[in-house]
């Protein structure tokens, strides 16, 4: 019974993260020195109806926008490859979308190492999608290291969800 509200919260959090993250598209001046804004370029396109198989919400929730990793690892599990094959199929039939693959780590690691580890995870996803026929020109990768955990408890249950690579859709492939 308690799982349902939690799941809803999770979905809500994902939705917010997907449309509300200024760092992903931010085109601010370098460093934001001296307090200048740098808030430009936030993509606020709607997620659409999750029952519509052409919507971003459908991709995020039904296809699955993320894969999880073991501690320190960037190897794709069988389950992860299944999710990515689904992503590749969806992307093949929706050529207007470009993607950014975000690599993340849990908090049990030093900052620099986790940045490098997140990059490794994002690259593992990118490589797999390339192997499934997605053009490299449609993809970018970014590592957030341990800077953007999804779950905030300090237990393995949360860590497991934070060791992730998330495929984020945006309009404008080949732009």
């Amino acid at each position: 019974m308690t799982l349902l509200p939690k799941a809803l919260l999770l979905v809500a959090a994902l939705g917010l993260a997907a449309c509300n993250n200024p760092d992903r598209y931010g085109a601010g001046g370098p460093g934001g020195a001296g307090g200048q804004g740098g808030m430009g370029g936030i993509d606020s396109s709607g997620l659409g109806d999750p029952s519509n198989p052409n919507s971003i919400a459908y991709f995020n929730q039904t296809v699955g926008d993320r894969v999880l990793f073991a501690v320190d690892q960037s190897t794709l599990s069988g389950e992860a490859r299944g999710v990515l094959a689904g992503q590749a199929a969806w992307l093949q039939s929706h050529p207007d979308y470009a993607i950014i693959i975000e690599g993340h780590a849990d908090e049990q690691g030093t900052r620099e190492y986790n940045l490098a580890l997140g990059a490794r995870r994002a690259a593992a996803v990118q490589d797999y999608l390339i192997s499934q026929g997605i053009a490299p020109s449609r993809m970018k990768t970014i590592s957030y290291g341990k800077e953007r955990p999804l779950e905030v408890c300090s237990e393995e249950a949360c860590y497991a969800k934070n060791r992730r690579a998330v495929t984020v859709l945006s309009m404008g492939a080949g732009a």
Binding site: P22, G26, G31, G37, E112
Partner: peptide
């Protein structure tokens, strides 16, 4: 003294 605003993640 603050050197940047918080519009971007800054590290290390």
């Amino acid at each position: 003294q603050y050197l940047t605003d918080s519009s971007s993640i800054v590290l290390a």
